[in-house]
Structures are given as C-alpha cells and as structure tokens.
Design a protein around this nucleic acid. Structure first.
Length: 932
DNA sequence: CCTGTCACG
DNA sequence: GACGTACGTGACAGGG
C-alpha cells in the first residue's frame, strides 16, 4: 500500500544539522589519523537523539534526510549573485560532508540529494507529494525559506527549540500566511542568500503591502497608487529585481526525483552496518550506547595515543608498496576514481610534466591518492618506445586515455568547492592545470603546511618531509630521467616506471597531509597558514602566468655595449699586469695583484686563494689603476652575464614576456624569493645598472606603476620596540635618518649635513640587522672604536632598542623561535650555539621579527589586491619585498594608485593596530626605470 | 658540486 | 679574553 492517509513523513534538513553540529562542537579529530570529525560526531548524536525521540505514538512512518548537492543550482543561472556572499566552507568541515551521508545511511535512514537542486527544493517536492496523497508532513528545520510549505498537514519543527510551526506560527513570523510568504520574501529580500528584494523594504513593510493589495503581482501592477512617494518609486524602479527575487525564493516542488515516498519508509538501524561505521569514526561513547540499545556486543576501539607535541608520529602502519598503485588507462577506470574522490571530499594530486618550467612544460600524466597506499597514475602523453633511431618516437604509447577526455572528466572534481585538492607545492600544479583550462580550488599544500609550522627548522621539499615524517625515502627521479646531456623528459619514461614514481608522490603527499595538517593547530600557526600562505598560491600563480614584458632589443644593445667596454678594460688590465690572464678568475687575479705586483694587504682565505672581493679591490684602487679597472670590468661582467644576456633567454617565445617563479617557502622570514629568473635583484643602485630596468616595459597604451612601502622595517622596529621618538618622527612625516642623526648628535635638522645623515642611516639599518661595532665600522669605513661609540650613543638615546634586542634574544633562547606581529614563527635552533655561530643566530633572531612582519604585511596586501582591483584595467606583475609593480591602462593609473595604495597602507588592519602609519610611495612610467 | 662574487631589499 | 661578525635572498663563473 502506498503513502497516504494515516502516514506521517519526516523531512530532515541535512545541511542545517551539519552546520549546527559543526558550530556546537570543538574541532575534534580522529585519534588515529587526525581526520577532523567534530561535525560528524555532532551529526550522529543529533540523529541518535532524533531516533530516540521519535519512537512513541506520534512516530513517523516515513523519514528522509535531505542534502544540498553541488554549489551551482538553477538559481545561479537566473542570478549569478545568488548566495555569492556566502563564506567559504570551513576547511576542516569539508572532508566531513561525505561522512555525514555515510552516517545517515548507517542509521538506516534514507539519504537523498539531487544535483543542481537545493535541499529545500527536494523537501518542497516531497512535502507537496505527501500532502496530495493525504498524509502528514513534519519538516525538521528552522529555515524560514521552508515556511512557504506549511499548511494542509505540513508543519515545521525546530529541533533545537522543540517548537512546532503551523500556519499561525508562520503568520507570527512573516505577518502573512504561508501562501504569501514568497511575496513578502521577494520584497524584503534576504541578505543571507543575497536575494536583492526591494531596497528599503523589510518584512514588516512587505507584509503590510501584501495584506493591503492581496498579492505581489497586484501590488506591482498598482504600485502607482501607493501614497508614500519613496516606497512608490522603489517598487516602480525595482520591479524586475523584485520579480527575480520572487523566483529565487520560490521553492521548486517539481524536482525530478528518482524515488517515491514509499522508498522512505522508516527502518530499524542494522547493527551490522551501524557499528562498523561508528567504530571507524572512533566514537567511543556513542558506539557503546547504541550497542546497548540494539542489544549487541560493543566493538573494541583501539586506544591509540597521539604522539605528543612535535615528536614524529608512529611509523606508518600501511607500508609503501608500488604494487598497490594502479594505472588508469580508460574512461571507466577514471570515473571510478572520481567517485571515490567525491565520496571522500579530498584527494592528493600530482602532475607529471615535460619540465620544471610550468609556463613551458606540457602535461604528461596525473596521479591521485585518496587513502594511504591507495593511489593511481593516469598516463596521458607518454611516447611509445622507439624501435630504432636516437630520438624517441613521436607516437603516443598504448593504453592511455585521450588527454582531452581526462581533462574533461577531472575538471568538475578539481574545481568542485566541496572537494579539497591536496598537493606538494600546489602552485606548480595549479599553473599547469590553468593552461588546460582548469582552475583548481580549493587547495591545501603540504609544503606550506610544513613551512607555516617549521620555518627555520628544515626545508620543506617532499623528499625531506617524507624522510622526516614518514620515514620513507621517495623513489628518486634521477634514474628515470638520467642526467646531463642524455637526460630525457618524463614523457619518454616507461609508463610502468612512471606509475611507481608518480603514484608514490601522490601517496606521500596524502600521508604528509594527514600527518602535518593536524599539527598546525599544535604549533599555533593555523591562521598563518590559512591567511598568509595558502591564499597567496592563486595570487602568485596569476602574477607569474601574466609575466612582464621585456624588450629584447634594448637588452641586446646593452649587451653589445658592455662587451665592447669589457674588451677595452681587459686590454688595459693585461697591459698593466704585463701579461694576459683571466680577469674573471679571482685566483689568477689574486696572484697577479699580491704575488707578481707585490701589493700589500693580501689575505688568503680558507681555500688558500687571495681574497679579491670588492672591498679589498676598493682599498687597493686608491693607489693603483689595475684593481680599479677590475672593479669596472666586474660590474660590467655581472650586468652582462646575469642581466642583459640571460634575461633574453628567459623571454617566453609564446608570450614575449618574462615569467619568474616565486617560492613561498623559500625564505625563513616569510619573504618571497624569486627564481628563474630572479626579478627581485634587477640593478638599481648604479646608473649603469639601473638602465637595465628600461628594458622592462608596459604594453602599448599601458604604463608600469610601482608602489613601495616607505621605510617599512624601521616603522615596524619603532612599533615593536616601542620607541616613542621614532614613532613621533614617523607620525610627523619627518626624514627618519635625519631625525635619528639630530637626536644622536644633537644637530638641529636645518644644520644637518649629508654625511652625518648617512652615518645615522647606516646605524638605523644596522639596528635592523642586529648591529655590531665591527659590522658598522666596515660599512662606514671608520675605526671600530668610533663605530662602537656611535652604537653606544644610539642605545643611550633609544634605550628601547637595546631592551627589544635583549628581550628577543631571551625569547628565542626560551622558545627556540621568534615571532612576527602576525604570529608567523621563525625557528632559531642555533640560538644556544657556542662560538661564532651564536652571534649569527642572535642577529638573525633580532632581524627575523622585523623582516618577517614586513613580509607578512605585503603578503596581506597581495592577497587582498585581486579583489580590490577586480574589473580595473590593471594587473599586478611583480613583488620586490617592499614594492609591488603593476601594468595599468593609461587612463586607469590614478584610480589604480589610489586603490592599491589604500590596500597596502591598510594591510596590517584589522589584525594589528600599528602605532606608526604605513606610507606607500608611487611612481609611473613607460618602463620600470621611470616607474621606480 | 662548492666557493667567491655581486645584484637586490 | 678571543673569536669572527652586520639580516634575508639567487645567479653566475671558475675550478676542483
């Protein structure tokens, strides 16, 4: 007999249960592996309580838990801003979503969802069907959007407050009966779902109007009759928006569900299914309680003990074994993996490519891992082994699915907001995927998770993390690719070998994630990771992909000019030396200078060679021509080889631009590092070098705009050390070095000489670096005693600086790390060292919070920048520690400068309230030399 | 592969 | 009292 009179259907709003459970409980994790499990635990308890409470006379005959599915629904097609202001799902909730489905099934309760529809629509469909069949319906939810369904046997139940809502209850809430709820909602809008409604009209006014005119349509048709002029105009002006709002809030009660009410009949839980699930989740109390109630033996849950603090975990229970890795060669196999991934809610991903430069390298294959030891490799463009000839075959190897097909299948998962993609250095993989039209999100990155908790302790490469935390040495790539001239690219690797290598990388990545992610919390750097490391990945990927235009002809002309000058200098040098030798060889040069010419001051280093650094040559240059020529030659040689020659090699043939790569976890202090090429050390200090920046240009119709923080590290020092005199000088906008000099030497500002100012400037910088008399003496080329005198006077005038330095050193000694204002931790394991290393470690500890805080601030600015400049004709191209470089359409320059400056100057807010203002200077021009 | 040198903040 | 010493990076050339 089908559902009908006398039957009672309960419809549970699954998402509401999940969020309530998530927010009600602390972030519990599963003991054995650290999987976040709090929401699942709360969800199960709520289900259990629900079952217990519904066994009496009024028990339902049918029940289902309804979930949302997919983030894109028909409402997004109508209105792209629908629910656009929703906050992203919390990171630790995401992997729990699939588990709540399993929990529902484990309790033997029907669990329903439908792609492209919200849970509310399915609830509406079922409620209407049940009502028409003559049955009763209780919707267990407090969502006001569902109130339009109430009436004719349909009621709502707020499980938290245990209150039932009938027609009168709806009237209390909305001022209208259920049939007019959508009219009121259409007018009032909904800020939670981002439904616009009519501006200035809330629920009260909306109900008043609907009650007066009878319906929304009537109201809109007769809007002219409304007496209040403002209200009248609003309704006339926003008619379309109101009608759209009504469509958005109206539930679809005709969703194409593939089951009937009869499928939802209440069933007893099956202990054979429920117990194993609860055991797997390691819910001790609930397992025991339900075992008692169901009259079965409670299964034993191993009491695993989590390793304390930072001690390495117990060795992995699942050994690494390449035999467990599978090769995915066709559509069906890949679809199987995608199902597994969707079920899990997370997946470790790794790409194999033809090279290390992600702007050029092509995709060769993809590996996936969902569980320790369960990984696969999808070969895509491996070449067939060549029968003869020296060059590999151009033919594709057998047994690979077409690249396009794999991309099309994987795109929805890799872009699914409900599936977390885990990688080691995800920026690389994300850039590769971006070139194939996939925008990978959301992500986690094991390299950054490690960096956020262990900067300064060890590096964060997969090899060292695997050794350290998994006790496993990954398969080296060298034997597969060879080295030197005979090296091959990954597409020439035998697929069999590639499976073992690539799948293992994904396997390791997943295990590292399981091990390291829960420890972020222990280290207290979760916020650092989530707000300052991970969000930077897409921002940098975008900047790197965009690149900066570099004019080859300019560089080439400079190279030629440098070569000519160098040849001239070389001839002179040989002439002066009386013989020819390699000017570029410090060893040969040393012998010429100190042995042959017999100059004074030759010091041999630990290798036995004379030191010939710039400082040595500069001393000699006062009395001899040869070292002076060598200094000139060296400068030109540096400019030519490092810049004018090699930058040309880095111009990408496809884009005509230079694409650097930033390493996020490269510098211990939180700074970025730029490689291949390094665009953070383009010359600027000498006129000759600065001209290289003329080759960095904007596209026609655009200009380059440079914004840089003025004296950011000194400002941070003033704040952290609490130096009132410095803070005031900054607040008054004074020349800080002159102000320092005035304070130190009792010279009025208007009598300041450039030389006194220069000395104060050197001291200011010295302080940031952890000043020493020797270092300052060398920098200023003054006697050491004099330098020490300066430092003593400085500390006398600014005693807070010495206090800061002492406090930082003792903090480092006690904790073995120091911290930035934003909570970034930089470990200082050498702080207790004896001998010369002690000094190094102490100065690094003093410098790290200052340099690191500045790095944090510009990171925060960069993370906010894409949203701030969205829609503007501007692109962020480069970061140089305290500078951001943009390429901007000519008519958008002023706007960009205003916007970007606001973001940069406000980047510390609201996390940290600085006592000194942050000031950003701006410049613009056709090239980087002009803009800087 | 290591060292010295030098470019940047 | 002696010991070395400014902080953080990356690229290139020479030389084993």
């Amino acid at each position: 007999m089908g559902f009908g009179k006398g039957h009672h259907l309960h419809l549970i709003d699954g998402s509401a249960f999940i969020f309530r459970a998530y927010h009600a409980l602390p972030p519990l994790t599963r003991k054995s592996d650290g999987l976040p499990i709090g929401a699942v635990s709360g969800f199960c308890n709520m289900l259990h309580r629900y079952v217990e409470a519904n066994t009496g006379a009024d028990a339902p005959t049918h029940v289902a838990v309804i979930f949302d599915k997919g983030s894109h629904t028909f409402r997004n097609d109508m209105y792209d801003q629908y629910k656009a202001n929703r906050e992203e799902m919390p990171e630790d909730l995401r992997p729990q979503i699939p588990l709540t489905r399993r929990a529902t099934e484990a309790f033997n309760i029907a669990c329903k969802e439908l792609e492209g529809y919200e849970a509310d629509d399915i609830i509406a469909t079922l409620a209407v069907q049940a009502r028409e069949a003559g049955g009763r319906v209780t919707i267990i939810s407090s969502d006001k959007d569902l109130m339009q369904l109430v009436g004719g046997g349909v009621e709502m139940l707020d499980a938290m407050k245990n209150t039932r809502i009938d027609r009168e209850g709806v009237f209390e809430k909305f001022g209208v009966y259920p049939e007019h709820v959508v009219d009121v909602q259409a007018l009032a809008g909904d800020s939670v779902d981002n439904v616009p409604g009519a501006p200035g009209i809330g629920i009260k006014t909306a109900a008043l109007l609907i009650n007066e005119y009878g319906s929304l349509e009537e109201l809109l048709d007769r809007a002219e009759e409304i007496k209040q002029p403002k209200r009248r105009q609003t309704l006339i002006d926003h008619r379309e928006q109101i009608e759209l709002s009504k469509k958005l809030v109206t539930l679809d009660d005709k969703t194409p569900i593939d089951f009937t009410l009869d499928d939802l009949e209440v069933k007893e839980p099956d202990p054979e299914v429920l117990m194993p699930f609860l055991t797997e989740m390691e819910f001790r109390t609930l397992t025991k309680r339900l075992a008692d109630q169901l009259g079965v033996e409670a299964p034993v849950i191993e009491a695993t003990v989590q390793a304390p603090g930072d001690a390495p975990e117990e060795p992995e229970t699942v050994p690494f074994d390449k035999a467990t890795y599978t090769r995915v060669g066709d559509r069906d196999a890949l679809q199987g993996w995608i199902e597994k991934i969707n079920e899990r809610g997370y997946v470790a991903v790794d790409t194999e490519t033809t090279g290390l430069n992600e702007m050029i390298a092509d995709l060769v294959g993809i590996s996936l891992c969902v569980e320790a030891g369960e990984a696969c490799y999808i070969p895509l463009t491996h070449r067939a082994e060549s029968g003869e000839g020296l060059f590999g075959s151009d033919e594709l190897a057998e047994g690979q699915m077409p690249l396009d097909e794999a991309i099309a299948l994987l795109k929805p998962v890799l872009e699914d907001p409900a599936v977390l993609k885990i990688g080691q250095n995800m920026k690389y993989d994300a850039k590769i995927f971006a070139r194939y039209g996939i925008d990978v999100a959301p992500i986690d990155d094991t390299m950054l998770i490690s960096y956020a908790q262990h900067a300064g302790l060890h590096n964060h490469s997969m090899d060292s993390l695997s050794e350290r935390y998994l006790g496993h040495t990954p398969i080296p790539i060298k034997p597969l690719l060879g080295s030197g001239k005979s090296a091959i690219t990954f597409d020439k690797v035998k697929i069999e070998d590639a499976v073992a290598y690539a799948a293992e990388d994904a396997d390791i990545t997943l295990r590292l994630w399981q091990t390291l992610k829960p420890r972020l919390h222990v280290a207290g750097t979760t916020k650092v990771y989530e707000r300052m490391e991970r969000p930077l990945v897409p921002v940098l990927a975008q900047m790197e992909r965009h690149g900066i235009k570099v004019d080859r002809d300019t560089l080439s002309r400079m190279s030629n000019a440098f070569a000519q000058k160098m040849a001239g200098l070389e001839a002179e040098i040989h002439e002066l030396a009386g013989e020819t030798f390699n000017v570029g060889s410090p060893k040969q040069l040393g012998e010429i200078l100190f042995d042959k010419m017999g100059l004074e001051g030759g010091k041999k280093g630990k290798t036995g060679a004379y030191a010939t650094g710039a400082d040595v040559l500069e001393d000699l240059a006062t009395t001899h021509d040869l070292p002076a020529r060598v200094l000139d030659w060296r400068q030109l040689s540096k400019l030519k080889s490092t810049y004018t020659d090699s930058l040309q090699e880095h111009i990408n043939p496809d884009t005509g631009r230079v694409h650097t790569s930033y390493s996020i976890a490269g510098a211990n202090t939180g700074r970025l590092a730029s490689t291949d090429p390094n665009l953070q050390n383009i010359p600027v200090r000498t006129e000759e070098g600065r001209r290289i920046r003329e080759a960095f240009v904007a596209e026609p119709g655009n200009v380059l705009v440079s914004l840089d923080y003025s004296q950011i590290e000194l400002r941070i020092l003033a704040h952290i050390a609490g130096i009132d005199a410095l803070k005031e000088a900054f607040r008054d906008g004074q020349d800080i070095h002159a102000a320092t000099a005035s304070e130190m030497f009792n010279v009025p500002l208007d009598e300041m000489t450039p030389d006194v100012r220069r000395q104060a400037k050197a001291i200011n910088f010295g302080v940031i670096y952890g000043i020493s008399g020797f270092g300052l003496a060398r920098n200023l080329r003054i006697p050491r005693a004099e330098a020490q005198g300066f430092i003593d006077r400085y500390f006398e005038r600014f005693p807070g600086i010495r206090d800061y330095m002492d406090a930082t050193k003792s903090f480092a000694k006690e904790h073995l790390y120091v911290e930035t204002l934003f909570g970034r931790k930089i470990h200082t394991p050498e702080i207790g060292a004896k001998g010369p290393r002690a000094g190094f470690a102490q100065r690094a500890a003093i410098n790290a919070p200052i340099q690191g805080t500045a790095a944090d601030i510009i990171r925060r600015a960069m993370i906010r920048m894409p949203d701030a400049i969205e829609g503007k004709p501007a692109k962020m191209l480069l970061q140089v520690h305290d500078e951001l470089l943009f390429e901007v359409a000519e008519d958008g320059v002023d706007d960009l400068i205003a916007t970007a400056r606001e973001v940069m100057e406000g980047a510390a807010d609201p996390a940290v309230k600085l006592d000194v203002p942050l000031i950003v200077d701006a410049g613009r021009g056709a090239n980087w030399a002009e803009a800087h």
